[in-house]
Design a protein around this nucleic acid. Structure first.
Length: 331
DNA sequence: CTGATTTGACCAGC
DNA sequence: GCTGGTCAAATCAG
């Protein structure tokens, strides 16, 4: 138990450090864009030094605490994201559990998956971005201590296809543009043939991929907004990485493969050392990748332990310390 | 007319 | 008794 707490603290530290790295890279980016003089070059050097120090520290934490690099175990068995094996899938298990009328589901937290997503159209939007499924709202409750009510949705195909998937959407108190979305159960429905684009196809293969991606993108947004208030937040729209134009575009650098594993096309790894970075875009990309990778195994406290264990990500412990940056590996 | 949303009530867990 | 999850009738929208 104490280990878990310590591990969680280490994760938080890692995320915090990488967030700081992200800030520094942005400052460096600004300096690189400005006409260079001696003072500017000196500042760049100092920024780079800090970046390297922070990344070294993070890497050291990973080495000294290998647990930090391993994904958080899902509460219960298996991962919500990885398996195509339906029989022992936790979501399926929840789905197969017979629900008596109006009976609250047992507090089996491991059957849920929480993500924090941003509103599609900014703070004025009524709800988070479409996750690709059709939901039917069946209730809304004011939650004690929460400023905003919680909305309850179930899959539109619940009756026709006995799909057990439900989700709860609640606007966060501190960031009205952000929504906490908790998914329960797994979609067993077959989406309508019409509009079966790649996004839909990917979902059909991994029903929770979109949620996971949303969470990934959202966490980048949240972390940036809180850690770098003085700088433009890296919303998916403004994120320089791949010129993302929508929340899903940020996630577009990630795709699920046939095993439901998440692959990021920031390849090839390992990431080059900072001396080899040739553009500020590279810097941003590298740090964003690292931040996303660590975040994927180090959920922010607000997201709870059960949040999206992207165990397909991990850290390659074989990297050259000289590169000063962790890299992703694809098992 | 059909399907989605709203909303008060019901129910179980704590 | 309080709280949160769900039901279902009423209402709305296309």
């Amino acid at each position: 138990m104490a280990d878990a707490v310590e591990s969680r603290g280490g994760r938080a530290r890692l995320v915090s450090d990488l967030g700081r790295v992200q800030d520094l890279v942005r400052q460096l980016e600004l300096q690189l864009r400005a006409p260079g003089d001696a003072a500017s070059v000196d500042l760049c050097r100092r920024l780079v030094h800090q970046i390297v120090a922070l990344t070294d520290s993070s890497i050291g934490m990973l080495h000294s605490s290998p647990d930090l690099a391993s994904p958080l175990p899902a509460i219960g068995t298996g991962s919500p994201i990885s398996s195509d094996a339906a029989s022992d899938h936790p979501f399926r298990a929840a789905a197969s559990a017979s629900a008596s009328p109006k009976k609250r589901k047992a507090t089996a937290r491991w059957t849920s998956q929480q993500v924090r997503v941003s509103a599609a159209g900014g703070s004025g939007a009524e709800g988070p971005v479409d996750d690709g499924y059709s939901w039917r709202k069946y209730g809304q409750k004011d939650i004690l201590g929460a400023k905003h009510p919680r909305a309850y949705y179930r899959c539109t195909h619940r009756n026709s296809q006995n799909c057990p998937a439900t989700k709860q959407v609640q606007r966060t108190d501190d960031h009205p543009a952000l929504f906490d979305v908790v998914y329960h159960g797994e979609h067993t429905c077959r989406p309508a043939a019409a509009g079966g684009g790649s996004k839909r196809a990917a979902q059909q293969h991994n029903p929770h991929a979109q949620a996971a991606l949303q969470g990934l993108a959202a966490r980048l947004t949240v972390a940036t907004a809180t850690d770098a208030a003085a700088l433009p937040p890296m919303t998916p729209e403004s994120c320089p990485v791949r010129g993302a134009s929508s929340p899903w575009s940020l996630a577009s650098s990630v795709a699920s493969d046939s095993n439901g594993c998440m692959h990021q096309d920031v390849s090839p790894c390992p990431v080059p050392g900072y001396r080899e970075w040739t553009s500020d875009g590279d810097l941003q990309e590298v740090v964003s990748s690292a931040f996303a990778a660590v975040s994927s195994v180090a959920p922010l406290p607000v997201l709870d332990d059960e949040f999206m264990p992207l165990e397909c990500f991990g850290f390659d412990h074989t990297f050259d310390i000289g590169t000063a940056m962790p890299s992703l590996y694809y098992p």
